[in-house]
Write a protein that binds this DNA or RNA. Structure first.
Lengths: 136, 136
DNA sequence: TTCGTTGCAAACATTTTGCAGTTTC
DNA sequence: GAAACTGCAAAATGTTTGCAACGAA
């Protein structure tokens, strides 16, 4: 791991992409977005930078959905909904966080809690609509 | 996918193993546990049965930790703590579930919520102890 | 005898890594 | 010029799958 850090146009672009979307992208999604403007971009670079961002705490991981890790530029705790049909991930910002509960849990169990995440799983609005249609 | 279902000693054993532990095992962990008693057991069989159990709702997935999926024989909603150092997963049964919140969220966003999960992430008791020691 | 189940190994998909060339400072 | 960054491709990892043999009903 490098001690100092240098500027990199591609790194900046990767961060911009993930900050500019709410789809909670995969590494490959970020790569596909940038490829047209950066034809010599490598998927490995995207992985490397995402890993670095995460370590710096600039981004966070929502978890693995259908085998692919999903990232999020919003690092403050908030809830997510994962659609098991389309794999979509939505923010549920209006859902309040059980932060007191979490704090208590740490003390109760003797743990250091760095992060927490409430994840709901089910079928999203669009997929529900599609499913209804295909039944007809 | 088969319509009817037949008995299988190995399937039973796999279920027994996952029901008899609280480590939230990986497929490979289950495999390693059974290998001594079932020398001709195949890892593929473990994967196939775990997938089937999950589809039947007999087991559930806690998520992917350090690249490996973790399973749980307890299917009713409860919270988990994941240690980012050792990869251990603990149940936090005493932590009450924000079930009303979840119910509201479904209606608010027009979603069908099938499952939810509160996951805390940090460093567990044992790893905290180890870390302290290695500092000395 | 039928057809679900399994072992085995090959196939797959995602992610990581080594290295040589390039870019930043 | 030193060291970080990148492209490329190979490697590593976890999981899935095809097929022939096996086993339960």
């Amino acid at each position: 791991m490098p001690a100092a850090k240098r500027y990199s146009k591609k790194r900046e672009a990767i961060l911009e992409v993930i900050r500019g979307t709410c789809v909670h992208p995969t590494a490959d999604w970020v790569y596909q977005q940038l490829k047209p403007n950066y034809p010599d971009l490598s998927l490995g670079t995207v992985y490397r930078n995402l890993a670095a961002f995460r370590q710096e705490g600039i981004i966070t991981s929502v978890g693995v959905v259908k085998g692919q890790e999903r990232f999020d530029a919003v690092t403050q705790p908030h809830s997510h909904f994962v659609c098991t049909e389309c794999g979509g991930v939505e923010d549920l910002c209006q859902l309040e966080q059980p932060s007191e509960l979490i704090h208590m849990a740490g003390e109760m169990y003797g743990l250091r809690v760095d992060r927490y995440q409430l994840t709901l799983e089910g079928v999203c609005k669009d997929c529900l609509k599609k499913d209804k249609k295909s039944l007809a």
